[in-house]
Design a protein around this nucleic acid. Structure first.
Lengths: 136, 136
DNA sequence: TTGACGTGAAACCAAAAGGTTTCGTATAAT
DNA sequence: ATTATACGAAACCTTTTGGTTTCACGTCAA
């Protein structure tokens, strides 16, 4: 099975700082549990459980070597995150998208936006979302 | 304050499916709470709490209009996620990185890897993580 | 063989998360 | 003025999460 069907959500797996640090450590090289847990102010068992969650999400893969279990990074599931993120990228670096939003706004909103900002081409993103500042 | 100092972590904010869907809805246009909550099988108050979390993470911004509170997307904090993710991109689309890992392994490990795998150029990543099976 | 090491599973616990209902209050509509 | 709407805050409940300690078991070392 080269599948790695994730039982745990990658979003949730990555939400925990400890687990992110684990991924970071493992990005360098594979490591057994005890070595990993040495980097954290918690019990080995706790780290082991984090690893389990990462494993369920397909983000690490374990492999027995003698009496130790070595974990290594399996970055592929992060592609889901990347794909999700890519949808929102347009909102900060796609000027055409900003323009689309701009023209789709109802007129009063748009005009408020133009009034409220510098109205330069590159402030379209800001403009299309702007019009606060009338809140006190 | 144009700062948006996040009291809630963006990773955690985005970990919940409901909140991701909220962001998705808001990416189109700003919306008041009641309209948003119409899209979910839960109470308005629950949705309101999710919005609070998104707001704390700086991912949405609210604005009172009459008796309603309109929320809109504020995508900038997602850049933190993007930046985090970019570190791992090298592991799935940078062949040189795979090579780096390959040459960093100790020699016996590497030779075992070559024996143990198909030794194609594109299996370098897999190869660099190979090695055991000489036990038992 | 005996003992130390490396680990996961289990039982347990406190705190956080996600949800509900109820309530107060501001605004809009009649 | 009264009623309906939109909302957040509060109190409360249940489930999940992140952690602990204890235990059993396989493996390596003497």
């Amino acid at each position: 099975m080269s599948d790695a069907s994730p039982k745990h959500d990658v979003f949730q797996a990555v939400a925990d700082p400890t687990r992110r640090q684990l991924l970071s450590l493992l990005s360098d090289r594979e490591m057994p549990v005890t070595v990993l847990s040495g980097h954290f102010p918690m019990s080995r068992t706790a780290v082991s459980k984090h690893l389990r969650i990462l494993s369920d999400a397909g983000l690490v893969k374990e492999r027995k070597v003698g009496r130790e279990t070595r974990y290594r990074l399996q970055p592929e599931p992060l592609l889901e995150l990347k794909r999700w993120l890519s949808y929102y990228e347009r909102f900060w670096d796609n000027k055409l998208m900003a323009l689309k939003h701009f023209v789709e706004q109802d007129t009063s909103v748009a005009s408020t936006a133009v009034r409220g900002s510098q109205a330069e081409p590159f402030s379209l993103v800001a403009a299309s979302r702007e019009e606060e500042s009338d809140r006190g």
